[in-house]
Design a protein around this nucleic acid. Sequence first.
DNA 1: CAAATATAATAGTAATACTATCATTATATG
DNA 2: CATATAATGATAGTATTACTATTATATTTG
Lengths: 228, 228
Amino acid sequence: MERLLQTVKIAINDKIYVKDPESSDLGKRIVEHSILMIDEIGFESFTFKKLGRKIDSNESSIYRYFENKHKLLVYLTSWYWGWLEYQLVFATNSISDPTEKLTKAINIVSKTVVQDNSFSHVNEVLLNKIVVNESSKSFLTKEVDEENKEGYFTIYKRMVNRLEEMIKTVSPKYEYPSSLASTVLESTLHQHFLKEHFPTLTNCNTSKTPGDFISDLVFKTLNQSNHG
Amino acid sequence: MERLLQTVKIAINDKIYVKDPESSDLGKRIVEHSILMIDEIGFESFTFKKLGRKIDSNESSIYRYFENKHKLLVYLTSWYWGWLEYQLVFATNSISDPTEKLTKAINIVSKTVVQDNSFSHVNEVLLNKIVVNESSKSFLTKEVDEENKEGYFTIYKRMVNRLEEMIKTVSPKYEYPSSLASTVLESTLHQHFLKEHFPTLTNCNTSKTPGDFISDLVFKTLNQSNHG
DNA sequence: CAAATATAATAGTAATACTATCATTATATG
DNA sequence: CATATAATGATAGTATTACTATTATATTTG
């Protein structure tokens, strides 16, 4: 898997950036250290000036890659979903049994991320933390419709659609396949957040994971839809 | 109901504000117009200076009520959950049948909000839109643990706990009552958002509501937990 | 009416979120 | 190898934000 991924590039809509950060050393350092820095100080406190200082580069140089920090966040979350999509497709492609396939898919999207050494400039563990803590801010804006039209959220939408298709295959009669699919992703992130900050609002902890909860939720729902 | 509410005040943790906005005319105008303005231009573009201009008051005067716009957002969302909690308790209190009670509760928290004239300075319809579009930003911050300790999110947590208790009563054996309760609230908001901005990611539309989806999800899950 | 309180007006500061210009340093190509 | 081109860095500048501080002016209340 590592070998294969080394030749793979996560394809991000080129409207999200001014210059492809994968195309240069500076670009990769911007991505690498923005992940470290956003994780460390949070998206609100993060600025291009601070990042410039950290990577011994210049604020103005960073602006040559991303218009603003919002676009950088959209880029990072897109990258994350692209990376996860790859894992998802890779891991489920060969599975023919629909239930087993969906089980595996939920497993992939909800599991705690471990370091993947295929992309040396991206720390996937921290990026996952950023997705949990900050990614909502990438679409909860006044510009969401415009940016959606420009295709900023294509990868995320494709991810939801993949889950939707799997759900439909398991339960063709179920009435809310896309709502359930979007809930799987959103709720996974939310339960991870609650586990960390609001433990009384979740039953997820070290022994029961968000993935366990979501699997239970999805299959009880679909089971009822088939035989209820 | 309107009569009764006229004598009721939504009690907000007094650490959230510097001076209680309910205690003066200016305070009420701040709340009233911040709702209109955040809805109109979004939380990112909203500033106390702009609000001051709008209500013919001064930036510095607004700072005497709220330390910053973040706290104002925490106040507004707390008010919303307090208001909704009141509706929930009022509407479910007299119901003894557990299933009927939970059905009603989900109905209350997920339905499209209509104007309530009990609080003249609060436009609940717009406030609901703000909660859908902006409320995540009130807890997705680096200060969340600190603020949680200070009790900024008490009302929201109490709301989740009320749902949790109802879920437990319906299905004492179900393993994830608090996760399901928090998912009910979060997913409701998310489905309302998707309906508006990402219609391909949800089955909710004019005929099927987020409430229908959530009810279906919850009861299929709990039903399976009882008889599965 | 005096005292206290609330609000308004003004000014000021450091930081943010950029844009513009020009200098310097790599790199690519002829 | 020279030189054109592109990439990066350094510096400066602007409007806005997110405040704090001070002083002046209303308004309320005792």
